[in-house]
Each structure stands twice: as structure tokens, then as C-alpha cells.
Nucleic acid binder design. Structure first.
Lengths: 114, 114
DNA sequence: TTCCGTAGTTCAGAAATTCGGAACTGTTGA
DNA sequence: TCAACAGTTCCGAATTTCTGAACTACGGAA
């Protein structure tokens, strides 16, 4: 398993962020991670929207979010804890995440994106 | 040629908008249309970013933007005039387009999206 | 009318991407 | 050492994207 890649703030690309958040399933995952009280492990994220996401697909989704710079993943023992990088992204692209989550009806004020 | 489809405001989907604007080439096209002084015809949009976009590809890009609800196309004789639906989209998803164009460094204040 | 040029769409095959089950890696605890 | 667990990687199938070629539609000239 190769180490996780996380882009630096100055390397964030709007197209990667928009692409990552153009999939409602990934938005649900991201909103859960960005919201309060999520453990952020893959297992906890596997059935958010009524269907169980296959774990290979989930792993790909996490990779897309991670490489867009939206989340940061840290291995803790056997599991991975993910947390959002909203504040960093918001510094680079002010208002972007808040506007996107709001468009999806996701109450950005409960995250740290507003 | 089948008639052009334009979604009603209430049918706009954030995922379609984000997907449409997750391609820098489409963003350039959209920014040009949303900006001042563009005729908005395909011919006028074919070489914005240093390369000439093949016209079949351009036609697909226009379709993606149109069906996301970002632009409206009207046939005028032999050509098609495209103009942005920024104001409508902004009513439905306030601040979204402005934040996206700003993230791309596209000065939304010159469009009617701010 | 018929023909021609222009603007853009549709078609179709190649290339690239996405999806998801199976196999795998790495960690913890018995 | 072994088993269970969390997540990743592999790989084939399905879907999507790209673009040249063919096509449609309109307007103007003869």
C-alpha cells in the first residue's frame, strides 16, 4: 500500500474540487466527514444514502476527495480516520465549499466551511 | 436536428452544474459567454485556450453547459447565439457561480453572476 | 428553383474512465 | 501463528468522452 497523497493548499485545483463534488454520493460522504460527530472511517460511511457502497468504490471515492484536497486521511491502527480540510480550502477559495454544500441543501453552517 | 433542451430553474441540479464546470475548457467557454461583449457563437468560442476545439467536441461542451442550465442557446438563422443564465442560476443557488468563477480566477464581477 | 457556403449536430469507433467483485496488504488481538 | 478486520489494489465489464466524418438546416446567389 502506497502512502496517502495530500496536495498542498497552493496546489489545489478548482476543477478537481468541482469534479469530486459533482457526484452526490461523494457529496454525502464529504458532508458527513465535514459535519459534526463523524468518526470518518470508511465503514461508518459505507451506507449513507440508502444503498451500501461497495468498499472498492468507497475507497476510490475517498481517493478522489483526498486528492482534490477536500479531506485528510490518517491511519490509526487498522482503521483510517478522515477529516475535512474545509478551513484550508476556504482560505484558498473563499466561499466555494459553503456555496456548493448550500446548493446541495447541506447546511454548510454545521461544518467548518462557512 | 432535435430542438434544444433547457431545464427549468426548479429542475437545475447542483451535480450537473459542478460537473459542467469541472472542465477548464468548459469554464473558459462559460466565462466567455457570461462575460461582456461575447457574441456567443460556437465559431467565436472555438479557440479560447490556445488550442482549437474540434467542432464536434465544442458542440458536446455546449450541450453539457446547456443541459446543466448554465446557458441558453437560440438559433438565429444559420448560427446559434448563446447567453448565460447566471441570474436564474444565482436565484436558485445563491453565490454558487460567483464562488466557482472566483476560484478559477475568473472575476465574476464582470459577469452577471455576482 | 437549385446550388453553394456556413454553423452546428449526430454518428460511430477508439480511447479513457468508472464500477465493483475478488484478491491482496497491513494491523490488532487471541 | 492464526484469524478477523479495515481498507487498497487488481482487473474485466460497462459507461463515458473524444473527435473525424457525415449529415442537417438555413441563407444567399444565380
Amino acid at each position: 500500500m502506497r502512502p496517502l497523497f495530500h496536495p498542498a493548499i497552493e496546489d489545489l485545483k478548482p476543477e478537481a474540487i468541482l469534479y469530486a463534488l459533482s457526484d452526490p454520493e461523494r457529496v454525502a460522504i464529504f458532508a458527513q466527514i465535514a459535519g459534526v460527530g463523524s468518526s470518518g472511517t470508511c465503514t461508518a460511511l459505507a451506507n449513507l444514502g440508502g444503498r451500501v457502497i461497495p468498499k472498492s468504490s468507497l475507497s476510490q471515492h475517498m481517493k478522489v476527495l483526498r486528492e482534490a484536497g477536500l479531506i485528510r486521511g490518517e491511519r490509526h491502527g487498522v482503521e483510517m480516520r478522515n477529516h475535512s480540510r474545509c478551513q484550508e480550502v476556504d482560505q484558498r477559495f473563499p466561499g466555494l465549499i459553503a456555496a456548493i454544500l448550500s446548493a446541495y441543501g447541506r447546511r454548510p453552517e454545521e461544518t467548518n466551511a462557512g
